[in-house]
């Protein structure tokens, strides 16, 4: 049952975004988030939605998968929208008034835009990064992108190594948890009934052996790594070196164009379709 958890939500594929360099994708994701926050006018929001759809099409990820990713955030979106509707004060007369509750046109527009913003940022970063990049490529990308920080003694390599090992051992530990839970069930443990506290306490006999065995694994792994001449970053090379490819340039140009259009709209076209902030 625990095996069903998908790791890092990576969906293997063959699209331009899958082929792009992980470093470039990290940069693009950051740019994308900044640009979305720069958008002010309603027109630019329409354009943000359009661009996000373009990204989804490029990634060849099924829209159903993206809707599933948005599902857990529905509560946050409604929450945000709710506060925006009731707490935004407009200049015009309220559309609806009941005692102290006043709803303005601006409030509704703002609430809708906030939902669009959250949905777009989430979709965009999923498509750009997590859905199209394997966790290991992501770690490699981060390590190489942050490599300059090594000069000021930030242990970048060590963090990347820890990430890699964590990713490597997640399936192993999940399997082990399953085994321990079954062993405890065989001895009469009950994980599925009772209140929250009772259930949490029932998990204790699972966690303790799991911790004990993790420490034993860690020590064995350390010895094995020493035997394979591991000594941190010192004198280490990599088999696969990351190279920027034409597709990376194409994506960068696309992203920059997106940013420029957003800024142009902000400066010159802010009054068109403007119900906004």
């Amino acid at each position: 049952m625990l095996k069903d958890i998908t790791l890092g939500q990576f969906f293997p594929g063959n699209s331009a975004l899958h082929k792009a360099d992980p470093r470039m994708k990290i940069i693009l994701t950051m740019l994308y988030i900044v640009f979305v926050f720069l958008a002010k006018a309603t027109l630019s929001y329409i354009f943000v939605v359009f661009f996000t759809v373009v990204l989804v099409i490029i990634s060849k990820i099924k829209p159903v998968i993206i809707l599933k990713a948005l599902k857990p955030l529905i509560f946050i979106m409604i929450f945000t929208a709710f506060f925006n509707i009731f707490w935004t004060k407009g200049d015009s007369t309220p559309l609806f008034e009941y005692k102290f509750i006043k709803i303005y046109k601006e409030g509704i527009v703002f609430a809708v835009l906030m939902i669009v913003r959250i949905a777009c940022i989430l979709t965009g970063s999923c498509v750009l990064l997590t859905y199209t990049t394997s966790p290991i490529a992501l770690t490699d990308g981060l390590e190489q992108l942050l490599a300059p920080l090594k000069k000021i003694r930030v242990p970048v390599h060590e963090f990347a190594m820890m990430m890699t090992i964590a990713l490597r051992f997640i399936p192993t530990l999940i399997e082990e948890t399953d085994k321990i839970m079954n062993a405890q069930k065989a001895r009469g443990a009950d994980f599925n009934s009772g209140g929250l506290i009772k259930r949490a306490r029932a998990l204790l006999p699972v966690l303790i052996p799991l911790f004990a065995s993790s420490f034993r694994r860690a020590s064995e792994l350390a010895t094995a790594m020493e035997c394979r001449c591991y000594r941190g970053d010192k004198g280490r090379t990599r088999m696969t070196k990351l190279h920027y490819k034409p597709v990376d340039l194409f994506l960068l140009i696309l992203m920059v164009t997106f940013g420029v259009i957003i800024i142009v709209i902000n400066i010159y076209l802010i009054d068109i379709l403007n119900f906004s902030v």
Binding site: P135, I136, T164, I165, L167, R168, L221, A224, M225, R228, C229, Y230, R231, G235, R236, T237, R238, M239, T240
Partner: peptide, 15 residues
Amino acid sequence: VATVVEEDVAFGPEN
């Protein structure tokens, strides 16, 4: 150590 077989085999020579 690694999450892909060939990456793991490369670990020693990389070191």
